[in-house]
Simulated assay, not measured.
Amino acid sequence: MSDTPAPPPTGPLVTRAGLAAELRAAGALSGETLLVHSSLRSLGWVCGGPVAVVQALLDALGPRGTLVVPTQSGDLSDPAVWAAPPVPRSWWDTIRATMPPYDPDLTPTRGVGVIPETVRRWPGALRSAHPQTSFAAVGPRAATVTDGHAEDCRLGERSPLARLEELGARVLLLGVGYDSCTSFHLAEYRVPAPLARVGRPAPDGWREITEVSISSDRFGELGHDFERDRPVVRGTAGAATTRLFPVADAVAYAEGWLPVHRPRVGDILLGGPE
Rank of each mutant, 00 (worst) to 15 (best):
T144N: 00
T182N: 03
V54C: 06
P63Y: 12
L173R: 07
P86G: 11
Y102V: 03
W91F: 14
L61Y: 03
A239E: 09
P108G: 13
V36E: 11
A28M: 12
E208R: 15
I209W: 15
P116S: 02
R228L: 15
S216Y: 13
A125D: 05
A97L: 12
G74I: 10
P50N: 07
T98V: 12
V265H: 10
M1G: 15
A202W: 11
L269S: 14
A28T: 15
A142R: 03
P131N: 07
G18L: 05
T210R: 08
G44W: 10
L186Y: 08
E165Q: 13
A26L: 03
R89Y: 04
P160K: 00
A56L: 10
L174Y: 12
R264I: 01
G113V: 04
P231N: 05
L269N: 10
A239P: 13
D103K: 09
L76P: 09
V14R: 13
D78G: 06
S30F: 00
S90V: 10
A83C: 07
T33D: 07
V251D: 07
E157A: 14
A129Y: 06
G111N: 02
P101N: 12
T109V: 15
F245P: 13
G199A: 11
P85V: 04
L61Q: 03
P12F: 08
P9Y: 11
R64W: 05
P116M: 04
H37C: 06
A60D: 12
V53Y: 09
G148C: 09
P5K: 06
S128L: 10
A193C: 09
S134Q: 06
A142D: 10
L173G: 08
A240Y: 14
V251T: 05
V232M: 07
D147W: 05
A250R: 11
S73W: 04
A142G: 11
G238A: 08
A239V: 06
S215V: 04
L155F: 10
R96Q: 11
A240N: 11
T33C: 13
P194Y: 03
A84S: 13
S128G: 10
A248T: 14
A25T: 09
F226M: 08
E117P: 09
V198C: 11
R121P: 00
Q72N: 03
T118Q: 13
P85S: 01
P86S: 14
T109I: 06
R141W: 09
V212H: 01
A143D: 15
S213W: 08
D105C: 03
P192N: 06
M1T: 08
V265N: 01
D249A: 15
A143T: 02
T210M: 03
G113R: 02
E166Y: 01
S42R: 14
L19V: 14
S213V: 07
P246Q: 06
P140M: 08
G256I: 04
W206V: 12
A125L: 07
A17G: 15
R197C: 02
Y189S: 04
G148F: 13
A252C: 04
V232W: 07
V212G: 04
D204P: 02
W257R: 00
R234G: 10
V46A: 06
R264C: 00
V145P: 11
T109L: 02
F245S: 09
S180Y: 13
Y189C: 00
P70C: 12
S39L: 05
T210D: 03
T4I: 13
S213A: 15
